[in-house]
């Protein structure tokens, strides 16, 4: 405890709460309010309405939500497999190649998403592989952008696993694959789930690469929100943003429940 006087503590809390409310509470509150606003020409909206949500739930927007969720799940699942595989494979390597490969697997997280989009656009608009204008290229972009995060999460989990678990298992006669299945994977399960959650959230909010490469008919929510706000339908955009945020959070909360169950066991 840093501040001992009661008054001082209350002052510190109040200040922090105020800053927190302005910096984080206000933007979310305003988006939420805007998503229900009929008209907002004054300090506060003149009346509230559900029409933006009604718009969001039919036609293009509903389809975009579906596209985002499908893309998020598919890319996250692929990234989870690839990232876990990489993290597991690197675990037993010698120090130097391990560090070198570790950097390689992390690099995609450092490259700006727009450049990743551009690179995919350039690479897959020419032979040998033509993917421009397909859904696959969106999936690839999301996969590339989130793979480093899944890799990072899983290898962090593996690094925190005391080596004794695996050694004891091995001394008890467990072969490599048996150890992986019965000891390592169950013990890093919370990290796998966390990795998947993070990937999914990142994919759901991805804009930079998607906006460069999305084909007609495979529009993700962020792209849809941008075109709505670009057209001036900011209330519809707000409603869609709320849907995006809430569906992301639902998945996150659901997965963290599974994760805490897995770690409690």
């Amino acid at each position: 405890m840093l501040v001992w006087s009661r008054a001082g503590r209350i002052l510190a809390w109040t200040a922090a709460a105020l800053v927190f409310a302005i910096v984080y509470g206000l933007p979310i509150g305003v988006i939420a309010l805007a998503s229900f606003s009929g008209q907002w020409n004054d300090v506060l909206p003149s009346h509230l309405t559900l029409v933006h949500y009604a718009n969001a739930l039919r036609g293009d927007s509903a389809e975009q939500a579906q596209v985002s969720i499908v893309t998020g799940f598919a890319a996250s699942a692929a990234a989870l497999i690839c990232g876990s595989w990489a993290a597991l494979a690197l675990r037993n390597l010698a120090r130097l190649p391990k560090r070198a490969l570790d950097v390689l697997f992390f690099v995609p997280s450092a490259v700006p998403s727009v450049s990743v989009g551009l690179a995919l656009l350039v690479a897959f608009s020419q032979p040998p592989v033509l993917l421009n204008g397909t859904r696959a290229i969106v999936l690839i972009a999301h996969f590339v952008l989130i793979s480093a995060f899944t890799y990072g999460n899983v290898s962090a989990g593996l690094a925190r696993l005391p080596p004794e678990y695996e050694q004891v298992a091995e001394s008890l006669g467990a072969r490599p694959f048996y150890r992986l299945r019965r000891v390592i994977l169950p013990l890093v399960a919370p990290y796998l789930i966390a990795a998947f959650s993070l990937s999914f959230a990142l994919s759901m909010g991805e804009l930079g690469a998607t906006v460069m490469i999305y084909p007609p008919g495979w529009v993700t929510l962020p792209v849809g929100i941008f075109s709505l706000s670009d057209r001036g339908s900011i209330f519809d955009a707000s409603a869609l943003t709320m849907i995006l945020a809430i569906s992301t959070l639902i998945v996150l909360v659901g997965l963290s429940r599974i994760s805490s169950k897995a770690s409690v066991r």
Binding site: Y24, L26, P27, I28, V30, I31, L33, A34, W40, S197, L198, A201, L202, M204, G205, E206, L207, P222, I225, F226, S229, I234, A237, S238, T241, L244, A245, T248, L249, L252
Partner: peptide, 21 residues
């Protein structure tokens, strides 16, 4: 935890909110 969750939200949410504020 809330701050952690904020990391998961799309960045443009804030930009959109700021136009309202």
């Amino acid at each position: 935890r809330l701050i952690d969750t904020f990391i998961a939200l799309p960045t443009f949410l804030v930009a959109l909110a700021f136009t309202f504020i």
